[in-house]
Write a protein that binds this DNA or RNA. Structure first.
Lengths: 319, 319
DNA sequence: CTGAAAGCGCTAACAG
DNA sequence: CTGTTAGCGCTTTCAG
């Protein structure tokens, strides 16, 4: 016991004893066993991070933010890649909870969380922070952006640049996708522009989806002169399709994305986008989570909305 | 005990008892505690993954490969972002070992591993697989590519495209950096081309380093007509600098990178590169690691070299 | 200030 | 096939 205390720097150990203990520990190359410690303290100092795609630059940036925030607090991150698959996510969350992580940060692939593993964790008062997406029926902390504003901001910008036939390559049916779509519609309505149904095409999260969707739009009798894309990878794919068809960006078609992923500035046509401070999302989520973990009593769920801002680059600049 | 066995599917439990146990477990919403289990089995089913930068697309892809491989084996990944900082890496590796991860995959920020935490883990026979970089003095498994060949392949390609004044924006003093530099020099020597010292400029891993380094090269009295860059982000930065200076890629200066990161095809000028199958590196490393973990006796260190291949895109195509 | 007693939740080994 | 005994390495509690 004396040794345990000495090693953890308890104050009720005499200086002399501590020194002796530390010395001997070094001699023996002793390392405390965290598993055993966790068993008794019921704290693992691990947090689970569940994201849909490590390779999507947005989530990589979020993960980095989380990592940067918790490193000095000596928490470690158990990471799960759900591949946008709700079942994988369920399995992973169950695993994480069986491992007794102290808390969870989740960008969920679920549309509806009412019967999910997350729900049951929340019931058991395990600290959870949702990021980016907010599945229905989960009363947890949330850190993200106002997606409807992103959609409106981007669409308004296209309108201001003189676009009149504005299409949207939409994302999936999760809150980010539906929110941005709503913003797009709101902006069109406000400016009394038609919202043609064929101008909204379904996409997915990545550049190949954007590429395919754009090809569809280009086939229309009257193709759009501006496209708001669900996110930057989708926009990059869309631009590729436009250029391949022989048209010019932004002259023939202006394109804007969302997310301001790190390489957007290096793309064929530097991409206009709505920045959503990805690493701040990660840092904030980590901060909230740690606060929950270390609080005596559960905190009431917070919704933290991060600032978003328009970034104008060449892909929409039609002077 | 019967319950423990029933839950883990031991065969020496009657069908009837198992059913009863399972039923009751469900009723009670019972979940086994992995921490307690780990304490006695001495296996955590966690593997540590230490990488220098989550946001670098190459490492993100590696991580995804690892994740994809271990998910069905129900290992989980504890991830550490060393930020290319050797001290952070040391701390993280110590932590991971204190947590009793079953094994470690490390892309080390160390040049020399002789006195490192890794070294001491290897002594204690903890399974470790190095990836991408091979610090001196660590006798562990390795999965990566032949960096010298990457350098030679890329440089030869520039020569074949008619470049005669070939520069290299080199990486740091780790094996990837030095190997690629060696390959560059070898290729120049073989073709009897001068290796001007001012044509090798120091860089780092990222696009801003490439941008700065390229500016240096452009200031030379006789700037290069071809540049082999340490990796794709560096190349992307270099291209940005070239275009900003009013020159053309590839006509005035051809540029080639290495790594074939996912967005290379979407860049301003689609980037020629040497592919190194990043996700295969991750998958292979995970496979080797799991084999080590599950082997009764330590396996002799393997060096697995993944195929690399030249990918020619516009940035070097000067017909 | 130091240390003895008890137990965290589980499983290996073995006895019935 | 089922269950008992012992103990994984640590910390909480409390007595000296």
């Amino acid at each position: 016991m004396t040794i345990s205390k000495a090693l953890r720097g308890h104050r009720d150990i005499s200086e002399e004893t501590r020194k002796r203990v530390l010395k001997r520990a070094r001699e023996l190359d002793y390392r405390p066993n965290w598993v055993a410690r966790s068993l008794v303290t019921r704290r693992t100092h691990m947090i689970g991070l569940v994201i849909p795609d490590l390779m999507h630059s947005f989530f990589a940036e979020v993960a980095k933010g989380v990592s940067r925030m918790v490193e000095p607090l000596s928490y470690q991150i158990v990471i799960s890649n759900s591949e946008e698959n709700a079942e994988t996510e369920e399995r992973q969350i169950e695993m994480l909870s069986a491992r007794n992580v102290d808390g969870l940060i989740v960008a969920s692939a679920h549309v509806n969380g009412r019967r999910s593993a997350m729900r049951s964790l929340l019931k058991r008062k395990l600290p959870c922070v949702l990021i980016d997406r907010m599945p229905a029926g989960l009363d947890a902390h949330f850190v993200g952006v106002k997606d409807e504003e992103i959609g409106a901001l981007a669409t308004n910008h296209l309108i201001e640049q003189g676009c009149r036939r504005i299409a949207h390559i939409r994302g999936p049916a999760i809150t980010t996708g539906t929110g941005r779509l709503r913003g797009y519609r709101r902006a069109l309505a406000r400016h009394r522009l038609e919202a043609l149904p064929e101008y909204v095409v379904s996409g997915w999260h990545n550049d190949s989806a954007g590429y395919e969707a754009m090809i569809q739009l280009l086939r229309l009798d009257c193709p759009p002169d501006g496209v708001f894309c669900y996110n930057d990878p989708v926009a990059a794919g869309a631009i590729k399709a436009i250029l391949e068809s022989g048209l010019d960006v932004p002259k023939d078609i202006a394109v804007i994305g969302a997310g301001n992923v790190h390489y957007s500035d290096l793309l064929r046509i530097p991409l206009s986008t709505v920045d959503q401070s990805s690493s701040v999302i990660g840092e904030t989520a980590a901060e909230v989570l740690v606060r929950c973990i270390e609080a005596k009593t559960p905190l009431p769920p917070q919704r933290i909305l991060i600032r978003r801002r328009l970034i104008v680059r060449d892909s929409t600049l039609r002077r």
